[in-house]
């Protein structure tokens, strides 16, 4: 496969630290010298104990966390795109068209019906209302969300139901790079199965996936490679200035 020789994403010597001004300027170093590559059609799974910086990496790739050091690059035919220096306004289109993100938590406008939450990524790309609705409904049906819930706002849904709305919203737009932060965390076996299928379909159409899965079974079925994060590259969130450690 030629795509293996041409990665879509390269992360090099990534470094992340948080400065907590409220705690006397204490610096929390959470990641140092992390490097990886990811090719189209590949699913790379991040492994390691919680707190090691797996979600932090996804958030840096999605632009929600700033990069302290190192580089994040997407490789396009016309050349590379450096994410760490990308101006804020450029992220709108990048997120709309290239980088998708399925988080553990659903964060939406209250009172918006589930089906409209799922439609939004398509509408943002200018898809027609009717077409977007059909696709959103078929996605929700596939994830076994009862039809009576489609037109209700997800605020009152159970954790698993909210998660499925979130997954539908994340997969519907078929982004070339998908970041998955424990998408199967609160799902039953049947729905985990659907997510595995969705991931495999995404790989088949050439998407690059970077995910966090705590479920061993899912991990083994979707992962092409495992990247164990160790304190060497992803450091546990321990303060480096011991004397400033908060009580």
């Amino acid at each position: 496969m030629t795509s293996l020789t041409h990665p879509f994403l390269s992360v090099d010597a990534l470094h992340k630290a948080f400065v907590l001004h409220g705690q006397g300027g204490m610096t929390l170093e959470v990641m140092r010298d992390l490097s990886l590559t990811l090719s189209p059609g590949e699913c790379l799974v991040l492994a390691g104990p919680s707190g090691i910086g797996k979600s932090t990496l996804l958030k840096m790739l999605h632009g929600s966390y700033r990069v302290t050091g190192g580089t994040l690059r997407l490789h396009f035919e016309e050349g590379d795109l450096s994410l760490e220096t990308l101006p804020a306004h450029a992220w709108h289109n990048l997120r709309r068209d290239v980088i998708g993100y399925v988080s553990q938590f659903l964060r939406v406008v209250p009172r918006v019906p589930a089906v409209e939450v799922v439609m939004e990524p398509l509408l943002a790309r200018g898809a027609g209302e009717a077409e977007a609705r059909v696709r959103a409904e078929s996605m929700l049906a596939r994830l076994n969300l009862p039809e009576r819930l489609w037109h209700l706002a997800p605020g009152t849904f159970s954790g698993g139901e909210q998660q499925r709305v979130n997954i539908a919203r994340g997969f519907i737009a078929e982004h070339p790079l998908l970041l998955l932060d424990e998408p199967t965390a609160s799902l039953d076996a049947a729905n985990r199965e659907v997510v595995v299928e969705l991931i495999q379909e995404a790989k088949a159409r050439g998407a690059a996936l970077l995910g966090i899965f705590h479920d061993e079974d899912v991990r083994e079925r979707v992962a092409d490679r495992l990247l164990p994060l160790t304190p060497y590259m992803g450091m546990p969130s321990t303060p480096i200035h011991e004397e400033e450690k908060p009580s």
Partner: peptide, 16 residues
């Protein structure tokens, strides 16, 4: 900066 950058990873003491 980006909205979630400011809210999830604020840099300035006041923003934090």
């Amino acid at each position: 900066g980006l909205t979630d950058q400011i809210l999830d990873d604020p840099q300035h003491a006041y923003t934090q």
